[in-house]
Design a protein around this nucleic acid. Structure first.
Lengths: 130, 130
DNA sequence: GCGCTATAATTGACTACGCAAGCAATCGTA
DNA sequence: TACGATTGCTTGCGTAGTCAATTATAGCGC
């Protein structure tokens, strides 16, 4: 399923999730540390992940006026459209995977239980300003 | 949690699972291919995993009389006792992780749903004989 | 203002895996 | 019974990630 994502759109599952988080973030940009938290990666992992996404132009880097230590990861136009393309087939794949195995009611149950796991819905979108 | 396992007993989660599957297998031995299936690794992954476990003496290799292509992975005495040690704390950790978040009834629900996922209970313990 | 400590990011060295290729042994078929 | 196809395993190489060390900046106490 993530293999399909990679074959059809050239995105690993983490590439995809990184773009997704950026697309949901304010102004399509996030501090690298925060992105690390959401992807369950270390900061160095994020550096390397973004290296790739920057090289292919899906993400670009920007700096923060009020804290010169931070560099933002910013979703580009290309990144946003690649994400849209990939989303369609990926969401469909995930949906059909679960719908093939569970009823609607069971899906609700499952979602209710699973969201209690740590970080299931982590989403602190801190800004850089103090 | 798997970090704890590694720190306290020097076993990665895959080391642990490999020992566990071997301990449950007939005569404590399995073909490497079968082990690969259970661990969701490729055969080369298993080769490398077992390299480590053989080096530390937790597993040894044996050959199959009826098919000279296969080499068994065999749990040693050392391996069995390391597994026993590690199991105690690991099972306790897993249990308390879930019990902290879910009621008994919810755990039953969750188990019922999750076991319908692919490979949730895969366990083909083929022998080498034809 | 001046140290001191904490934080954001990067880099080098390493690990764990997958993939593709290769070898040896076995099986299927005629 | 000879030979092509398949199966079990290993190895070389590439990739994705971690950890530890490093650099640059921020913010605190005084």
């Amino acid at each position: 399923m993530s293999a399909q994502l990679e074959l059809e759109h050239g995105l690993t599952i983490n590439d995809y999730e990184a773009l997704l988080h950026l697309s949901r973030a304010d102004e399509g940009r996030m501090r690298r540390v925060d992105l690390a938290g959401m992807l369950l990666l270390t900061p160095s992992g994020v550096t390397r992940l973004l290296d790739g996404l920057e090289k292919t132009g899906l993400v670009e880097r920007g700096s923060c006026a009020s804290d010169r230590r931070v560099t933002y990861a910013i979703l580009t136009e290309d990144g946003a459209s690649r994400l849209r393309e990939a989303s369609e087939s990926h969401i469909a794949a995930v949906r059909s995977f679960f719908e093939a195995r569970f009823s609607d009611q069971e899906l609700d149950q499952l979602a209710g239980l699973l969201e209690r796991l740590p970080d299931a819905g982590a989403g602190s979108s801190e800004d850089c300003s103090p």
